[in-house]
């Protein structure tokens, strides 16, 4: 290493640099290999297998699991899961954008404190925070106690174990993942551009739609992905706050690996799920390329 330093920067041996780059990359590649590529391969193999009476995977080739995955029952559940995740992402954008803008434009010391507040919930386990919501929403819980004490005497709300409770849980869990990337875009936003827009006669609405939104779009896109992907596969919130009444795809997959003793079918659903993401991502990519080419 000391010898390398003496040699100085101008002489760059390409082969050595390549070797060093690989050495630096190796831990990450090993990590990807071990925790992404290998499990995905196992999943893919399992999805074409059968199972025996005890739920052990039997290595005989079959298409049955995929045939079953496209049964209308599961297609409908896929559709509903996408619906829940889309709604979660939409609410997170609407609720998170103003917050991110405010934090991004705040004075520096205030900004740091506000950012800390966004991240504070992560100091507590996700499950404990979900149980806290149960305490708030249950019929004899905090929210209804507050409502009862109001002078107008609003009747007790029946929130827990409803789809509304599931949405509250999902938006609560993933809102920080929307705020932080948008904040990143807002912070880099050049104030001069907004002033220029004003000077050129644009009203606040026009500035927002023609300047602020396009410039923070990367943040919004990243946030949407970070919210949409985990919320589509979530099963703990639907079980705990939704009373497991309406199954989402995460619940169905989890159930195959536990109670139903059908790992191959669970694996097939998982593979379909991943394929769905890959295709969506690819379409989005093509869309952007075409847009860039056109604009």
């Amino acid at each position: 290493m000391t010898a390398g330093k003496e040699a100085g920067p101008p002489v760059t041996d390409r082969r050595t640099a390549g070797w060093r780059a690989w050495a630096l990359l190796a831990p990450m590649l090993a990590w990807l290999m071990l925790f992404i590529v290998v499990p995905t391969a196992v999943l893919l193999v399992y999805s074409f297998c059968e199972r025996d009476e005890l739920g052990r995977v039997v290595y005989t080739f079959t298409w049955d699991n995929y045939q079953r995955a496209f049964d209308p029952i599961y297609v409908r559940i896929f559709g509903r899961s996408i619906g829940y995740a889309t709604l979660t992402a939409a609410i997170c954008i609407v609720a998170g954008f103003p917050v991110a803008c405010y934090i991004g434009r705040a004075r520096e010391e205030l900004r740091d404190r506000l950012l800390l507040l966004v991240m504070v919930p992560f100091w507590t386990s996700f499950l404990i925070r979900t149980y806290a919501w149960i305490t708030i929403l249950k019929q004899e819980g905090l929210l209804n106690a507050v409502l009862r004490s109001l002078p107008f005497g609003a009747g007790p709300l029946d929130l827990l174990y409803t789809p509304v409770a599931v949405m509250i849980g999902l938006v609560y869990a993933y809102l920080p993942f929307m705020i932080l990337p948008i904040y990143g875009s807002v912070e880099k936003l050049d104030g001069a551009l907004i002033e220029a827009a004003h000077d050129l006669g644009a009203g606040p609405l026009r500035v927002f739609s023609s300047v602020i939104i396009p410039l923070t779009l990367p943040g919004i896109a990243a946030g949407t992905l970070l919210v949409f992907v985990p919320s589509i596969a979530m099963f703990a919130i639907t079980d705990l706050m939704g009373g497991a009444r309406v199954p989402l795809i995460g619940n169905v997959i989890q159930n195959q690996f536990t109670q139903a003793r059908d790992w191959p079918f669970g694996a097939a659903l998982g593979v379909v799920f991943m394929a769905l993401f890959a295709v969506t991502y690819w379409i989005l990519l093509r869309f952007r390329e075409r847009e860039e080419a056109a604009g």
Partner: peptide, 18 residues
Amino acid sequence: GKVAADIDRLVTDLKSAQ
């Protein structure tokens, strides 16, 4: 044995039909 899978499918179907 394997009828368990049919039972699981039945209940999943009916729950999601709500």
